[in-house]
């Protein structure tokens, strides 16, 4: 993530350079990560984009293809990365991620343990939160997944903040070297209750654990296990509803003289700027929930290590 290192910070003056990771933005639901190289090209439905055209432009620029199509080039952030990373597993999204970081009180300098690494979506945000002096030790059962994650952290410039280990945390627990060292532990495992006793040993006093589980049975069993060493056991679910905004031309009934539903064009979307200005004069600006959304991701169970010393 560029902004975490002083010399790479995005600014008015910081322009795209050879080797930069940029997020190519087509639409809010269509983005991808691209490494800039002098001779590179990007091809999509809008045409062919030459990387050489990008170099020297500020981040946030609009660039054009050979056919006049355009995209935006954005500086990577943890949030954008979550939208473009390759899904090797089910991933966590911004609502859960932000809540986890806040609730686990992860701040610069913290030592955080995580398992499994999965696609590294949360790991990226954890690393951003502990920078510049903390560290995230993340473990995955799958060798291949761990390697891919390592490559990703290299790409996003986080490798100095993250160490990826291959380990069966459910079976073996976290390594002994972390006993009493962790500020927080995050678990996303099919059977979290198996890893909870080890997690308890790793935490500093008053340290907070979070377990993410999609099914309520996993939560029930985890909470049972947590009771022996933890307190303030709380389970949450967080969802995010997104709204679209549009200028809706709702007619007055007086002016709506009969006619069937589909007979006339009645709406104008204001998203496209060209007619937006005009529309805004007479249209009501309305927000409408995006019709389909994530109805559930998982339950987040938090617990604080009981102070006994």
């Amino acid at each position: 993530m560029l902004s975490m290192e002083l010399e790479n910070k995005v600014s008015f003056k910081r322009c795209i350079r050879e080797g930069d990771l940029v997020i190519v933005y087509e639409r809010h639901d269509n983005m991808k990560a691209v490494k800039v190289c002098e001779n590179g090209v990007l091809q999509n439905r809008f045409g062919v984009f030459k990387h050489s055209d990008w170099i020297g432009k500020p981040f946030g620029s609009k660039v054009f293809s050979n056919k006049g199509g355009f995209i935006y080039l954005l500086a990577p952030t943890a949030e954008l990365w979550t939208l473009v990373l390759s899904h090797r597993t089910q991933i966590l999204y911004v609502a859960d991620i932000s809540f986890v970081i806040m609730y686990l009180e992860i701040i610069p300098g913290c030592l955080v343990l995580e398992s499994g690494t999965g696609s590294g979506s949360l790991t990226t945000s954890l690393a951003r939160a502990v920078a510049p002096t903390g560290h995230v030790y993340t473990f995955d059962f799958h060798d291949q997944r761990a390697s891919s994650a390592r490559e990703d952290f290299e790409k996003t410039g986080l490798s100095s903040l993250v160490t990826v280990g291959v380990r069966d945390i459910q079976g073996e627990g976290f390594p002994d070297e972390f006993i009493g060292q962790a500020d927080s532990v995050f678990l996303d495992l099919p059977q979290p209750w198996l890893a909870i006793p080890s997690a308890g040993k790793m935490l500093k006093e008053d340290g907070v654990l979070c377990s993410f589980s999609p099914c309520i049975e996993q939560v029930q069993r985890s909470c049972e296990t947590l009771k022996s060493c933890f307190t303030d056991i709380r389970t949450f679910e967080i969802l995010l509803r997104s709204y679209e905004v549009r200028g809706e031309r709702l007619e007055s009934w007086e002016n709506h003289a009969g006619g069937s539903l589909g007979s006339r064009k009645r709406r104008q979307r204001s998203t496209d700027g060209s007619n937006g200005v005009e529309a805004s004069v007479s249209a009501t600006i309305v927000a409408r929930p995006s019709s389909e959304g994530r109805g559930h991701t998982g339950y987040l169970t938090f617990a604080r290590l009981r102070c006994v010393i």
């Binding site: 809540f99 939560v219 389970t235 679910e237 967080i238 997104s242």
Partner: peptide, 12 residues
Amino acid sequence: QISEPWLREYQV
């Protein structure tokens, strides 16, 4: 985008 968080706590 406009987002609205929806938070729910559970008794387990």
